[in-house]
Design a protein around this nucleic acid. Structure first.
Lengths: 141, 141
DNA sequence: GAAGGGGTTTGTATTAATTACAACTTTATT
DNA sequence: AATAAAGTTGTAATTAATACAAACCCCTTC
């Protein structure tokens, strides 16, 4: 990830999404960090840069990106959606102590399932939960 | 699944959950079908059997079950939580046409991940999305 | 069997994420 | 510059979920 603004511009153009100032800022924000922010986090953090920003715009833009396949929704938690600009195959781990969400590599080809031969699978999400190394250390005290 | 009422009673007792009439009805409802209902569906369907039932009670009971590990929350969709009384390892497939959620077997042991050696993993959720065989057939017309 | 107490249920009010929608603004096209 | 199309904004509405206090039920103890 961590695309240049120009690469991002082409990414949007390829999907027929007009690369407005706001959309580019939101995509840049998402692509620049791997924190899987909520819509509200994106809104709050961009507000000082785009003082006229509205939360509806954040939702509109995110939904546009998700429909175009540029962004993926992470529903690891039941109370709020998170967003990820990395659409390549990988899993998400949520630490139940600090709440951080970590990416981890997954061998999707080696993931053996049964009974899905007649299903068309378009999306695969792998969500793990537990405790992260940092919180495990802090907890020893 | 599909436990007898008595087996259910012992299941609750083992977890120190008092087996009230309402709780048993909710657990029976969950255990009897594999439709992964929402809290609202459970509420609506039990209302004719328990006319005094309150939606808060459904949420309270479900949260109690989830904390005790008897029920698992399915967050395959971002707008509502679903519930599953089958806590054994398996994946969930949601059809984007009919909305049904299907269980499928997954070989968790063969699921190869990287970078998690120092993490403690307590829960694994596998969510697939796409189109189910029934909807694929109907769509040919 | 009455009194008391802990846990359970209920209803209402509240919170918070998300969407609906109409007005307004910006951008593209002629 | 005029006009149309698309994007943005703010407010209101929707809806899942929780907070909380009152009412209720069941079990124990006197």
């Amino acid at each position: 990830m961590n695309l240049s603004t120009e690469a991002l511009l082409n990414l949007l153009k390829d999907k027929n999404i007009r690369p407005s100032y706001t959309r580019i800022k939101i995509m840049e924000y998402l692509a620049a960090r791997r924190t899987h922010p909520t819509a509200d986090e994106i809104y709050s953090n961009l507000l000082h840069e785009i003082p006229t920003l509205s939360k509806t715009t954040v939702y509109n833009s995110l939904n546009t990106f998700v429909k175009a396949g540029l962004v993926r929704t992470v529903t690891i938690e039941d109370n709020e959606a998170r967003f990820d600009a990395d659409t390549s195959d990988h899993g998400h781990f949520k630490c139940d102590m600090c709440g951080n969400i970590y990416d981890f590599p997954v061998d999707m080809a080696g993931l053996h399932t049964k009974g899905l031969s007649r299903f068309i699978v378009k999306q695969r999400d792998i969500y793990f939960k537990g405790t992260c190394p940092g919180c495990l250390e802090n907890n020893i005290n």
